[in-house]
């Protein structure tokens, strides 16, 4: 079976340090070479392959490039070097900003977000009840979103994405720290949904800071450090090394 994701020496850079002043000042500064633009490599010569039905947990400090990696795979960011092969379809769950509108009801929001994720109106109508059920928001269908708590929102977003995955059957699901919010029951539900998807050969890449969770639910763990692979392999091994790294850093009282 071929890989669903294949990244070879992928690099992604961001230009930073040009945020103050208007465009005019910026232009003058650039022309007169007063302020050379700094370049930040969010990913540098990064390679990774993922197989069908595999769950890869991604760990690393803030700013290590975890979210950038997901956005590159999702096609939201254009890469600056290397080659990127991603199979047919990707469903990203990178943040809660999937187009929800505060002033609209949950019903309208489900249709809006569903269409943005690529479903047709009919398809959304088909899975509408399942979305509401999975999110456990049965009594709030015609409430406006501005009355929702952040836990409710997270559940709603997760439920919309998971049900869209079931219908449009992408091969890759990307999840970024969505489990941080939500109570134990919701977590359990999400885990069982993820397992079901895995059985259907969906490749899942997820970022989390909960190391126990990562250890229990991934087939391989990727430790990202400053845009590069620090370690990739057996979850328990990588997580143990990462924990040791964290402890060392805490003892030194600073980031490396």
């Amino acid at each position: 079976m071929s890989d669903y994701i294949k990244l070879e020496n992928v690099s992604k850079k961001f230009k930073i340090g040009h945020s103050n002043g208007t465009l005019l000042f910026e232009l003058l500064a650039t022309v007169s070479r007063q302020r050379p633009r700094e370049i930040f490599w969010a990913l540098k010569n990064f390679s990774l392959s993922a197989y069908p039905g595999e769950a890869i947990g991604i760990i690393g400090l803030n700013g290590a490039g975890k979210t950038t990696l997901l956005k590159v795979i999702a096609g939201i960011y254009e890469i600056d070097g290397g080659s990127l092969l991603v199979s047919r379809s990707v469903m990203p769950l990178i943040s809660l900003d999937i187009g929800l509108v505060e002033r609209l009801t949950m019903r309208d929001n489900i249709y809006l977000a569903g269409s943005l994720l690529g479903l047709s109106r009919n398809q959304i109508s088909q899975c509408f009840d399942q979305i509401v059920d999975l999110a456990e928001l049965g009594g709030f269908i015609d409430c406006k979103l501005c009355q929702f708590s952040s836990g409710m929102r997270t559940r709603l977003v997760f439920s919309i994405v998971i049900n869209s995955v079931k219908i449009s059957q992408p091969e890759i699901l990307l999840i970024d720290e969505i489990f941080a919010v939500g109570d134990g029951i919701f977590k359990q539900k999400s885990i069982s949904e993820m397992k079901k998807l895995k059985k259907n050969n969906v490749t899942i890449l997820f970022v989390a800071h909960d190391l126990e969770f990562i250890k229990d639910h991934s087939d391989r763990v990727l430790w990202l450090d400053r845009g590069q692979v620090r370690e990739l392999g057996e979850p328990s091994v990588v997580v143990t090394h990462y924990q040791k790294f964290l402890e060392d850093n805490i003892n030194h009282g600073q980031r490396q």
Partner: peptide, 11 residues
């Protein structure tokens, strides 16, 4: 106006 959405969904 749709910056947040563009940054997280590839529609």
């Amino acid at each position: 106006d749709n910056a947040a959405l563009i940054r997280s969904v590839n529609f």
